[in-house]
Structures are given as C-alpha cells and as structure tokens.
Design a protein around this nucleic acid. Structure first.
Lengths: 156, 156
DNA sequence: TTCGATGCAAATAGTTTGCATTCTA
DNA sequence: TAGAATGCAAACTATTTGCATCGAA
C-alpha cells in the first residue's frame, strides 16, 4: 500500500481548532488524545493506527494502540477525523477537513489523492448509469493506473 | 453486507467444465475441492469462505475452512474463480465466468451487480479524468444508493 | 505408491472490548 | 473528586501456515 501524494500538513491553526472543538463538546484532552491529533494534523498524509501508536517514526511519543483506536473513533464521531480503506491492509486516518478523494491501482497497489472536483464528470456518469452518488473518500476509485494499464495493454 | 442481486446459478455444464479444466492442469478433484466448486456454481450469488465451509446453509456437506481458503486460492489461480470485497466484512467468491461489476452503498451497505457495459461511460469519464482504467469487479464502485442519497439530500 | 490435498491447530493482522487504574476538568 | 480516558490483556474476525495423515490418480 503506497500512500497518496497530494495531501500536505494541515495549517497550524487546525490542530488548535480541533482541540477547541473537542473541549466545546465536553471531551477531555488527554495526553494520548493530543498525540493522535498531533500525529494526524502534522503527518501530511493519511496514517495508520499502528503508526500513530508507535510514535510516527520517532517524531512523537508512543502510546497504546487500543487508546489510539478509541480516540480515532471518538474524533471521527466529532467530525474531526475520517478514515479510508485504500486496498487491503490497515485503515488510514486523516483530518476530516481534507476531503480529497482517492484513486488506487489494483495491480501495483499505489494510490493517489485527487481533489473532489477532478472527479465531477465521473460522478455525473455514475449518476446517469446507476443513480448512485459516487464517493471515493472512504473507498477509492479502483482500476489500473496508466502505467499498469499500458503494461497489460488492456481492453477498454 | 447485503448480497448482489443480478447473479444467477451458473449453467449446469459450467461445473463440469471447471472440473475438466482442473484435471487438464494436473490437479486432483478431492471431496472438498468438488464441494467448493459446487457451492460456488450453484449459489447464484457470491459466497464467503465461511458459508462454503459450513455447508451453504445445509445444502451441502461441511468441510474445513482452511481447505476452503486453499481451494479458493488454487481455483482463482486457475482462473475458474474470482473474489471481491464489497465493503467491510469477509471476501466474497464467485465463478470467474461472471464478470459482473459491483456498485455498493456506503450508507446502507447494500451492493448490487451490474453487467460490465452499464458502466462503460463511467470508465470513459475515469479515463478522461485521471487516466486510469476503472474496474469494479474486485472492489465496487462506492457511494450513496438512490434511496440513501434522497434521505440525505446530498450535494451533487 | 506417490505426492497432492486434507484436517486440525496454531499463528497472523487488524481491530475491539473488559476492567482496574489514572488523571483531566 | 467524579467520571472520562488510559494501559494492559484478552477476545474477535478474517485469513494463512505448519505438519502429520490421507487418498486420488
């Protein structure tokens, strides 16, 4: 599982805003909860629960994996965080503010983030074909990336 | 996880063809391997490994779950079977001949099979937008189904 | 009679839950 | 100081693997 490339670290104020929001809802800011937020808001890319719990490759203190999952759940309920499943492997978590969508290659496993408007014609085609409102921010749009497509010389 | 609705039991000859193919490749037809094939070719819808191992709700004898997974792998390598992931939950297996694609609703969890040509405009739009060759037979096209979309009165 | 396939048990990955303890508000 | 949140251990779901035994060709 490769990681999407478009995302960047959240603006500095976003972490503070998230903390305010948390307090406004009557929730406490514990050490591990702050850690989860810091990890997500400074990562610049979606992260796994395991990465967060193990300290983001030395950048942050480590903390318990179960607490990380519990906090991710809580923060997602508050609308501060969201998660996605890009192929097999563990779920990935990111600040909710980034509403990028994802495209993933089934063959090489790579995935990339694209901003929502890039796929508006796709959404329109889906609406016309099956009446669904397509969303690619939780599960990606899957297929063969241009390079794998070429290698396989695929039927269109 | 609801199950797609378009698929029907495979034509009667298909099971025999699969068995012939298996023998032609030098593989043996053991009791549990036959069972896996029978389960898939008569189910009329994608089935989980667990459903197959536990005897398809009484319709067939039960057999070991590990053997089922091993056989599904083998049969998939032979190109006789394929599997898909429609949302969370266990993988689903079906005869490879059915190359339907899938559309799944993120909100209500329901998924449906659609034949490949229904989504050709969608594939074209994806090609134009991101250069990928979209495929929805392993991971589904996800979004909100018409009924959930209406309930949420969603931004398009 | 061989070696492919099995059944059982144990391991694995990802995630969730129970519970006594800690610490924020 | 109440009760929210923690850390640790155990449970859980989906899947894979090791290994001695069995059975199809």
């Amino acid at each position: 599982m490769t990681v999407p490339c478009l995302a960047q670290p959240a603006p500095a104020g976003d972490l503070e805003n998230a903390i305010d929001e948390l307090r406004a809802r009557g929730l406490r800011l514990s050490a591990s909860r702050r850690l989860v937020l810091e990890a997500l808001f400074t990562a610049g890319r979606p992260a796994t629960a395991e990465e967060i719990a193990s300290g983001m490759y030395g950048r942050l203190p480590r903390c318990d994996l179960a607490s990380v999952y519990r906090n991710l759940d809580t923060l997602e309920e508050l609308g501060l965080v969201r998660h996605m499943h890009l192929g097999h492997g563990p779920g990935l978590y990111a600040p909710a503010a980034r509403d990028d969508e994802y495209v993933a290659c089934e063959r090489c496993g790579r995935s990339e983030a694209v901003s929502r408007d890039v796929l508006s014609d796709v959404r329109a085609a889906v609406r016309a074909a099956v009446g669904y409102e397509a969303r690619f921010n939780h599960f990606p749009l899957t297929g063969l990336c241009p390079s794998c497509k070429e290698k396989l010389d695929v039927r269109s």
